[in-house]
């Protein structure tokens, strides 16, 4: 779907003024030069509250150009409210072409998921990040966490994983799973499911992370090593489901659980909406067409 190619009057290209964009680009350059390191930046007031993607939007606004093609997803879906709002925002202020097709986008802004379709060189993935500091919930002092990163004092990170195992028998962290970047910095990859962590490792695309409220930017240049933290006797593993996607039959994508009725029936569907649609268009189907077996009667 292409948007109308008129830019909104009274606003600079992509909403932010050029000096701000330069400032953000400088921060991005620093971030790319030091993979995984959180670079502070002078975040601006955006026309949306904190917690709604202001960091991601500022990063996108700083890098987007007239010829870019933008895709925006929220939890994998192009058509939720937030994704639609942000996509329209850039259509209005930058008059750029927008798309839902992963392979056609040059910039993809995402909240909490990495698309299933593998990204290529030349693409940029912009993550929306709430709390950039992986150690924040264990060590509330910013002065301490900065020192810990500077001195590579990451024992505390493993304390969190240890606690998980002692409480649940396994590492229970299922999203925002901390990872070691380029053998140096530990980062919070934003609340993406741990299922997506392996995709970050050696990804050909550039990955940028923007936290608006906390005012931090960090980055993974293409082909950066990203290793999720674990223990020798409790290695990192990703989620699995018992069923395939009910719509397209995909066996290895991240599935959302949809509750169908109050009798306990549910179905599992690809979180990445575009990925699922593509597969259906290509003729793949799932079990959604069959009658639900064992419909439970309420007592």
């Amino acid at each position: 779907m292409s948007a109308a190619l008129d830019q909104q009057d009274g606003y600079n290209f992509a909403y932010l003024d050029e000096q701000t964009k330069r400032m953000i680009r400088r921060s991005i350059l620093k971030a790319v030069a030091i993979p995984g390191y959180q670079v502070p930046f002078a975040g601006r007031e955006m026309p949306m509250p904190y917690g709604w993607g202001t960091g991601g939007v500022q990063v996108t606004a700083a890098i987007i150009g007239k010829d870019d093609v933008l895709k925006v997803i929220d939890q994998g879906s192009d058509d939720t409210t937030n994704a639609v709002s942000i996509r329209k925002f850039f259509a209005k202020t930058a008059a750029v072409e927008t798309t839902e097709a992963t392979e056609e986008a040059s910039i993809i802004q995402t909240r909490h998921r990495i698309p299933e379709t593998a990204l290529q060189e030349g693409q940029i993935l912009v993550y929306q990040v709430p709390i950039p500091e992986p150690l924040r919930f264990l060590e509330p002092r910013e002065t301490e966490t900065r020192k810990m990163h500077a001195l590579q004092e990451y024992g505390l990170m493993h304390v969190k994983l240890y606690e998980d195992i002692s409480r649940h028998g396994h590492i229970a962290t299922t999203y925002a799973y901390p990872a070691l970047v380029n053998g140096r910095y530990v980062m919070d990859p934003s609340p993406i499911p741990k299922f997506d962590n392996p995709k970050m490792d050696m990804m050909p695309a550039l990955q940028l992370f923007g936290a608006g409220r906390e005012k931090r930017i960090y980055a993974l240049p293409p082909y950066t090593e990203v290793k999720s933290l674990d223990f020798e006797d409790h290695p990192f593993d990703i989620q699995e489901w018992d069923s395939d996607c009910a719509l397209c039959g995909a066996k290895d994508s991240f599935l959302d659980e949809i509750v169908l009725d109050d009798a306990g029936n549910r179905m599992f569907v690809c979180s990445d909406s575009h990925f699922c649609q593509q597969r259906q268009q290509a003729g793949f189907t799932g079990t959604a067409n069959e009658l639900p077996a064992d419909t439970k009667e309420r007592a």
Binding site: L138, E153, Y154, G155, L156, H158, V159, K160, Y162, E163, I165, S166, R167, F231, E232, D233, H234
Partner: peptide, 20 residues
């Protein structure tokens, strides 16, 4: 806010112990 075991184990993890 972390268990007794984690409290004792933290220094070990800080010097690189990685076997739970």
């Amino acid at each position: 806010n972390v268990s007794a075991g984690a409290n004792i184990g933290e220094r070990l993890m800080a010097i690189g112990e990685r076997h739970y």
